[in-house]
């Protein structure tokens, strides 16, 4: 090290090695962004939401179907009492429920209704309506990976946007609110 560092070429070695490392990361970064773009968006975006007919959490004898919800855009938020990340997301939903300007529908996923009711009682209920999918079969049609997930569905019942993972104020500001505004303008 000592003797070779005096020569100009040798002095460039660290710089070149570092440049190679950075180039590697840049390639990785670019590759990953194109790569992710292929995989992550749901195949259902801009397609009609699957038809469903699910019981209400409050009164399981009443069923809510896709047709009942047509006519205005709404957010469908997948949650469950066993879901740790949902508890994280929960304060954000409480804060935003009235700011969205459209109904926030809870989709209770693979959960015992009693557990879900207890959970909402304890933490507060941000939803305008909660439907339950105990078996998870409708969830398959939606392509739900897990909870929490949020779908933005327009007045015609077409899925406009899907977010996987907890909603945060940043996500809402960046991805949800502009789309809601768009839908409202289109509807007006």
């Amino acid at each position: 090290m000592n003797e070779s560092a005096g020569k100009p070429v040798a002095r460039l070695v660290p710089l070149i090695a570092f440049a190679a490392l950075v180039a590697f990361f840049v390639v990785g970064l670019v590759w990953n962004q194109t790569h992710d773009a292929r995989f992550v968006p749901s195949p259902l975006i801009n397609k009609p939401a699957p038809a469903f007919n699910l019981p209400r959490l409050e009164n399981p004898t009443q069923l809510v179907s896709k047709a009942n919800l047509l006519g205005q855009p709404y957010l469908l938020n997948v949650f469950a009492s066993w879901c740790f990340a949902c508890a994280e997301e929960h304060p954000t939903l409480m804060a935003y429920r009235d700011r969205f300007g459209i109904p926030l529908i809870g989709y209770d996923y693979k959960d015992a209704p009693a557990d879900a009711r207890g959970w909402l009682q304890k933490h507060g209920d941000p939803y305008h309506e909660v439907i339950t999918d105990q078996s998870g079969e409708t969830a398959l049609d939606f392509g739900i990976y897990g909870a929490p997930e949020t779908y933005l569905i327009d007045a015609q019942g077409i899925i406009r946007y899907k977010h996987i993972g907890p909603l945060t104020p940043a996500v809402i500001a960046k991805d949800i609110e502009p789309r809601i505004r768009e839908l409202k303008q289109a509807g007006a």
Partner: peptide, 18 residues
Amino acid sequence: DATYMPPQVKQAIAKAKE
């Protein structure tokens, strides 16, 4: 880190789906 799903798992699932 309390994230919803490790990215690797998500990718594996996405791939299975694909």
